[in-house]
Design a protein around this nucleic acid. Structure first.
Lengths: 110, 110
DNA sequence: GCAATACTTGGCGAATTTACCAAATGACCA
DNA sequence: TGGTCATTTGGTAAATTCGCCAAGTATTGC
């Protein structure tokens, strides 16, 4: 693996890393229903607002979500809805499906 | 977020965590072309074999890859090919596409 | 201006991850 | 049986992540 290949996979991994946290996945699912401000998300998640804000900034830094400030509130919304497509495959992995239910090669999963 | 909801998202996150490393993404892509033994992967990756072996065990522990021992070699293969579907969306996120190229709601990405 | 609300940022300790080396296991062959 | 190749596991230091608290910025309303 040379450096440019490594960089390429590093970039890809950073997108997955941004998603690879239960709170951030919860946020993504929540935002699939529409925009939410930090305060709303904080209530649903039940953590410190600073913690939620940091999770949001991780998602924003890779471009998965975007923000719009309205008054004192900052509304977050999903910018890359395609990440929702991951969920079905993830469920399949958790259920422990095998090749037959999820063959290699750009197939859909579920 | 109550405990059972948290557990659910924890499980989902663990699948993404397994993928969220450049070396492991490289392995997945490599295996999309067919099975490989640890030795082959180690050469292509250029890290210590023990490091590669540990990455493989992470992927195996969540069920993304499976193994078959033949002689002294252990061949790894992709068990959940659906994870390859993530790549297009990930590329779109990296390219910084916006809503129009990747609208919310179970759409395909690319 | 002041206080309150909404949010972000800095900082710190705790927990997790990562990569290497060394050592152990298992299979194959002379 | 001894040696070698293939792989896994244990251990450890360095780096990263995580969550809370404290403090700072911005907006609203009195």
């Amino acid at each position: 693996m040379n450096q440019s290949i490594r960089d390429e996979f590093e970039d890809r991994a950073s997108v997955l890393k941004a998603l690879a946290h239960p709170t951030r996945l919860f946020i993504v699912e929540e935002l699939s229903d529409g925009e939410r401000c930090v305060h709303e998300l904080t209530e649903k998640i039940g953590a410190d607002m600073s913690t939620v804000s940091k999770h949001l900034s991780v998602l924003k830094s890779v471009g998965i979500v975007g923000t719009e400030k309205r008054g004192a509130e900052v509304y977050y919304s999903l910018r890359m809805g395609c990440v929702l497509d991951f969920f079905d495959c993830i469920e399949a992995v958790i259920r422990g499906g095998d090749d037959s239910s999820c063959p290699p090669g750009r197939s859909s999963c579920g």
